[in-house]
Simulated assay, not measured.
Amino acid sequence: MKQQKQQYVTIKGTKDGLTLHLDDSCAFGELLQEIDEKLSTNYYDSGERSLIEVHVKVGNRYVTTKQEEELRALIRNKKNLVVDTIESNVITKEQALEWKRETEIISVTKIIRSGQTLEVRGDLLLIGDVNPGGTVIAGGNIFIIGALRGVAHAGYHGDQEAVIAASLMDPMQLKISEVTNRAPDSRGDGNTMECAYINQNNQIVVDRIQLLTHLRPNLTRLERGIV
């Protein structure tokens, strides 16, 4: 009996196009050959769509830039197909370090005085005050155990889910991503920690920090950073 050839490529059709699940233990050349064979059968039907998006999942395989280009070129050469995403469970050490820098909480103990600027790539946990004229900037969230009387800019790289929290919220200006809010009309009483976030109307609002549990249920880094 003829032994059946092992299948390294599984193709599934979805409402969003095609998804290619690739074996992560075989040689890359074998993948390319099987993708070419399977996509050449033209068994997929584009219907009324001029282009079909292809999502490639490579599993626990690191794909180099050159290999990505080969995958994209091979699929692009087939009728009506275009690669939308290539997803891998594996990243390089440099990518991991970059991710760590962008997501870790940076803890700083100091007073940010007028004319001074403190900027971090990830989340900022500042133990101290931000005086009028002082500025704090973070790629992620900003947590201030102290008074915020200056300027705070969270989500600097475009993260609209970022928040700003302070023991005393009395800022000159708040900014989250590209949304700016001047000093809020209502000032805190100094006894309740408050937070600022972007609401559904794309406006920055300030409210009790207890609301963060419901507003940002995935905000677990705050917990890890303080406990």
Rank of each mutant, 00 (worst) to 15 (best):
G139I: 00
I91H: 07
V90T: 07
A96F: 10
E87P: 00
Q116C: 04
L125T: 13
V90S: 03
L125R: 14
K93C: 00
K78V: 05
G140L: 10
I137V: 15
I106N: 11
E119T: 14
T109F: 01
I111G: 00
A96N: 06
R113D: 09
L125Y: 15
I137Y: 04
I105M: 12
I91F: 08
Q116K: 12
G134R: 06
G128R: 09
G146W: 10
I145L: 09
W99A: 15
T103K: 15
T117S: 10
I137E: 04
E98P: 00
I86M: 00
L118Y: 03
D129F: 01
I144D: 09
G140R: 11
K93A: 09
E104L: 07
Q95W: 02
N141L: 07
G122N: 09
T92A: 02
K78Y: 11
N141Q: 05
N89I: 00
T109A: 12
G140E: 08
E87I: 10
L118Q: 02
D84N: 13
S88P: 06
A96R: 14
V120N: 07
I137D: 00
K93H: 02
N131C: 02
I142N: 03
W99V: 09
T135N: 06
K78R: 15
E94C: 04
T117F: 07
K110Y: 02
P132L: 06
I112L: 05
A147E: 09
L81Y: 00
V83F: 01
R121S: 10
I105N: 05
I111N: 09
G133S: 02
I111S: 08
E119I: 04
I142G: 02
L124W: 00
K79S: 13
P132A: 06
T117Q: 15
N131G: 06
K78A: 13
G115I: 06
G115D: 11
I111E: 15
E102Q: 15
V83L: 04
L97C: 03
E104F: 04
L81C: 06
E119R: 15
I144S: 08
R101I: 10
G122A: 11
I111A: 07
D123G: 14
G134V: 05
I144P: 05
A96P: 00
T109L: 02
A147S: 08
S107M: 12
T109N: 10
A147D: 00
V108I: 14
G139A: 05
I86S: 06
V90E: 00
D123S: 14
T135C: 09
G128Q: 11
